[in-house]
């Protein structure tokens, strides 16, 4: 575990806390894509199937359970909680996310490290995570104005991806046999998707103005 990986995990955790805080404090999920949240729940459930077969560390196991539980809690809030549910605007959240699920699974069937049940679901989760933010980014772009907490949620998610790239560079330089193409290439694609958002996030930060995305 290096400092970049730890910082990446912490910003990932922070992003989820910011999102939960937003939903809890405002009893609203306006600006939040339910589809992205459902994709993340699928990502964690598919990836952490190894919770029952492989033990890495107490830290890993704990974080896996936190990620699964928190992603399910967020989906539950948006789908079931009476007040939060009312604030969900399904007309803005129209991304056909099932296409992402289908494409990721198909890709995992062809591109995986081993042709086993766990490995295919692991690869599937990596591909799906890479594109899972798309419904959220499209929703933000369509609604134009982004509230502070939602903006910070996406910012921390992007920061987490950026830090994971630094982690891989560090591991590549320090571990003699560090090669993991699937995770690294997908991770770079995933981070690139945030580039546009980051550009406007920094402009609004520099000008001390509200974050606005161009239509």
């Amino acid at each position: 575990m290096n400092i970049f990986r730890l910082a990446g995990d912490m910003t990932h955790l922070l992003s989820i806390l910011v999102l939960l805080l937003k939903i809890y404090a405002t009893k609203s999920c306006s600006g939040v894509s339910r589809k992205t949240q459902e994709l993340y729940a699928i990502v964690f459930l598919a990836r952490y199937l190894d919770l029952f077969t492989d033990f890495i560390s107490v830290y890993n196991t704990f974080m896996k359970i936190v990620f699964i539980a928190s992603s399910l809690a967020i989906v539950w809030c948006i789908r079931v909680h009476p007040m939060v549910k009312r604030s969900y605007d399904k007309d803005l959240d129209t991304f056909r996310h099932y296409l992402l699920v289908a494409a990721s699974f198909l890709l995992a069937l062809f591109l995986h490290e081993k042709f086993t049940f766990l490995e295919i679901f692991w690869a599937f989760s990596i591909y799906l995570e890479a594109v899972a933010i798309l419904p959220q980014l499209v929703l933000l772009q369509r609604s134009g104005n982004v509230d502070n907490l939602t903006g910070q949620y996406v910012f921390f998610l992007g920061a987490y991806r950026g830090l994971y790239i630094l982690n891989w560079i560090y591991r590549y330089l320090t571990e003699p046999r560090f090669t993991r193409w699937i995770a690294c290439v997908s991770g770079v694609v995933q981070t690139a998707l945030y580039a546009d958002f980051f550009y406007y996030y920094f402009i609004s930060w520099k000008n001390n103005s509200k974050l606005k995305l161009p239509a």
Partner: peptide
């Protein structure tokens, strides 16, 4: 890399 423990990241 220990076999079966390649996925040591989250």
């Amino acid at each position: 890399v220990v076999k079966g423990k390649i996925h040591d990241e989250l």
